[in-house]
């Protein structure tokens, strides 16, 4: 038993949400990158989480288990990007069209809000767990 209960679960979630925020930052930063290291327009990255089984808490018959999350994979979003007519652009093709990255600002902003709210929620769990541990240490004083 941890002194600060549930801290391992929350730590996993904080880590996962932070990675998600990092990826959103990368997507927004590269919203106009028409040529990546491979010479192709930047492709939006998406994060998927997976469950991490920490411990079985209930009786064996009843499978209630404390689960944490971790980043499962970071994948490219392969939907094609918008094609913009701009013949003067250095990355324009022979018809004068430039393929822009498939980053959608609205999606990224919503993702960012969701991730930072989830991060805050997990942080407040840490705060409360710490307060409980401190109170437990004060017993008898």
């Amino acid at each position: 038993m941890n002194l600060i209960s549930g801290i391992d679960v929350t730590a996993g979630a904080l880590n996962a949400q932070k990675t998600r925020l990092d990826i959103v930052a990368q997507n927004i930063a590269n919203a106009q990158t028409t040529r990546g290291p491979d010479g192709l327009p930047y492709q939006r990255k998406t994060v998927s989480f997976e469950t991490e089984l920490l411990r079985q808490a209930g009786s064996p018959g009843n499978a209630a288990s404390v689960q944490s999350v971790r980043v499962g994979s970071i994948q490219n979003d392969t939907t094609p990007g918008q094609r913009v007519y701009d013949p003067s652009h250095p990355d324009a093709d022979s018809n004068g069209y430039v393929t822009m990255p498939n980053v959608n600002m609205a999606y990224e902003m919503v993702d960012m809000m969701t991730a930072s709210r989830a991060y805050e929620a997990n942080l407040s769990v840490v705060k409360n767990a710490k307060q409980m541990a401190m109170k437990a240490l004060e017993i008898g004083k």
């Binding site: 808490a57 404390v66 969701t114 997990n122 767990a129």
Partner: peptide
């Protein structure tokens, strides 16, 4: 209460896990 804190931590961590049922 300590166990409930564990459960709530797990629930908030998994707020976006598909198919997760709260503890």
């Amino acid at each position: 209460a300590m166990l409930r804190q564990d459960a709530i931590a797990s629930n908030i961590a998994n707020a976006e896990t598909p198919g997760y049922k709260r503890l």
